[in-house]
Design a binder for these strands. Structure first.
Lengths: 347, 347
DNA sequence: CTTTATAATCGAAGCGCTTTGATTTTTAAT
DNA sequence: ATTAAAAATCAAAGCGCTTCGATTATAAAG
């Protein structure tokens, strides 16, 4: 019978003493190891563990095995010095956690403050994670190159592998932007404004480029005053939309960089007495849960962020476990969701 | 000069060899330890570390110190078997990460699947975290008691300490519900419906109880058909609102369990041709970022979830670091935000 | 110059596991 | 019974740090 009480946690030594077997045998049983074990022995050891309420120490195990079973996740910090969990990151995280929970990995937030180049890589070098998932890093930081030069397995979300040889998962932003622009143009709009999100995010740049390109293909001259840069937020959408709609010749449609911007733009139009979609069409990107509940419901792009999070983590796990992953982009296709906020121009 | 290249990570032994000092001195320098060190010695050691690109192993350090520097966070699982990151948890997480990043702790997600009693405490017993934050645990599970019986430092969000002796942080739900009900009653409403969220969450129960109590205090008879239980989601809000509004004598106001429910209810009213706030007032709870951007803007309760997350983590850190924390509730006060979705009844 | 006290550094013993070559049993085959 | 092969178990050497009593160098005091 056991001698020590529940004062201190039992170790594998205690189990050895209690069961009468050696450390190595215990360990072998614990991990369903490769060496054969007599059924009776296994029983006795398991019984001793139960008796002592033994639970192996993750750290000791990690030290010995040289792996933590922890995967890090780093969200791009754009707005302020602190981390921002918005609905985008929440959706990614949701997918990540789903996969993590079934694959036996823990997810740890890396909280590297990164302003320009001031981030510290300490958290990546202390071997506290077996790999890292970087979500939407800003383009004006050399974090990805720096991380890529470490030995750490790395997977990126929203970071094209052309920029650095890193496996990545993302939605096809080019195609998505084309869907939106195509929809607006098909409706007959010629004066289309664009409200950009953070200029230092890949997605914002792509959308803006496609916007220009589509206008060009439609033979429409690009008007610089129709493109305003801001952030991916309702506030920014509101402000920039007001500015856009105050122009002498305002656009008849707005391609918002994401749904939050679109929501802000809708509010701005309402405040200015402009009806949607009567006098102004608005299209967003992301299909946030509330997009369908707006008044009118928002035309937008459905982006499978949860699935992206899942896929990204699967990829990372493969890398961590040694599978050779090519540094290519896994692209998900967005889907155009036409709702009430867009209609033909009214002239 | 260094002999081994960047093939394998340098250890403290390498630093000792390179600098010519002993392990203990290196360690003392590394941690700004208590023993005095000659400035020149410190310099030489630091130099050796730089030369070797040395970074201490978090696991080895953890094993020796018997602490991981990791704090776990567990979000209540209510809907399905998987973890759900909604805007509530995102806000809490935001606050948690903010504090974590400045206090030098890492945050790890615990992903215990818990359906009824089927959760496993393995992740809590492997000493991979120094403490745990449990957010909005369901009332129909004995997770909190089970965790409390472990030695692990524990702090809860949205779990009254009366139920179990655990330090907790929350918003004053009773007061909040009174604010909403008071507002609706003050406007003159007598037929008020209530759309509940998940029945197994503390907050839902409290709101419902206060709802009844306020009606009682106002001398209004409680009508069972005016209270519908669902989940904290737009979909649920939509469905239950339709049901409520189809009643022979529908309510003139709805107290929604949270903003999502309110959003769904607004949509339902729109679909049924019921004007807000003309024929129906709707009030929510939480003040989600989009509440102000709805049409009409939603009257709701501002809940400081980010600050709650911050405070909860601060509390947990105090516990982990040995400060004696009483098992009391730290209550934040919600604030009534009156917007366009509520008005006097129209009769 | 000793003697003391103090500063600076060292050594060795853990922390709780895994790994694997070596040893002891057991089983199967002759 | 005898022996080789296979099965079961053991022992010892790490993994990379921290801790703290012990030892040595240095400075202050006599």
């Amino acid at each position: 019978m056991s001698e020590d009480d529940s004062k201190v946690m039992a170790t594998i030594y205690d189990v050895a003493k209690e069961s009468g077997f050696s450390l190595s045998t215990i360990s072998n049983v614990l991990n369903d190891g490769p060496r054969p074990v007599r059924p009776e022995t296994r029983q006795r050891i398991l019984e001793a563990m139960r008796l002592l309420d033994y639970h192996p120490s993750a750290m000791a195990r990690g030290l010995a095995r040289q792996r933590t079973n922890n995967l890090g996740i780093l969200f791009g910090v754009v707005e302020s010095a602190s981390i921002v969990i918005n609905s985008y990151s929440a959706a990614i995280l949701q997918g990540v956690l789903t996969v993590a929970s079934v694959s036996g990995y823990n997810i740890t937030h890396l909280t590297t403050p990164w302003r320009g180049k001031e981030y510290s890589l300490a958290q990546f070098r202390d071997r506290s994670t077996d790999g890292v998932l970087v979500v939407a890093p800003p383009t004006d930081s050399d974090l990805i190159p720096a991380l890529a030069s470490l030995k750490l397995p790395l997977v990126a979300v929203s970071w094209p592998p052309e920029r650095e040889s890193v496996p990545s998962v993302d939605v096809d932003d080019v195609h998505g932007a084309r869907l939106i622009m195509g929809h607006l143009l098909d409706l007959g709009h010629r004066r289309i404004g664009h409200l950009m999100g953070h200029g230092n995010l890949i997605s914002a740049g792509v959308r803006r480029a496609v916007y220009e390109q589509c206008l060009g293909e439609a033979g429409i001259a690009m008007r610089p005053e129709y493109v305003l840069t801001g952030t991916y937020s309702t506030e920014s959408g509101y402000e920039n939309a007001r500015r856009l709609l105050s122009l002498p010749e305002p656009p008849t449609a707005i391609f918002a960089g994401n749904d939050e911007i679109a929501f802000g733009a809708m509010e701005a139009a309402r405040d200015m007495g402009i009806s949607i979609p009567g006098q102004l069409s608005i299209a967003g990107v992301d299909d946030r849960p509330l997009a369908a509940y707006m008044n009118p419901p928002l035309t937008t792009l459905r982006q499978p962020f949860v699935r992206i999070g899942e896929e990204a983590l699967r990829l990372l796990i493969q890398r961590v476990e040694g599978a050779p992953i090519p540094a290519t982009a896994h692209l998900f296709q967005p889907e155009l969701v036409v709702r009430g906020s867009t209609a033909p121009p009214n002239e």
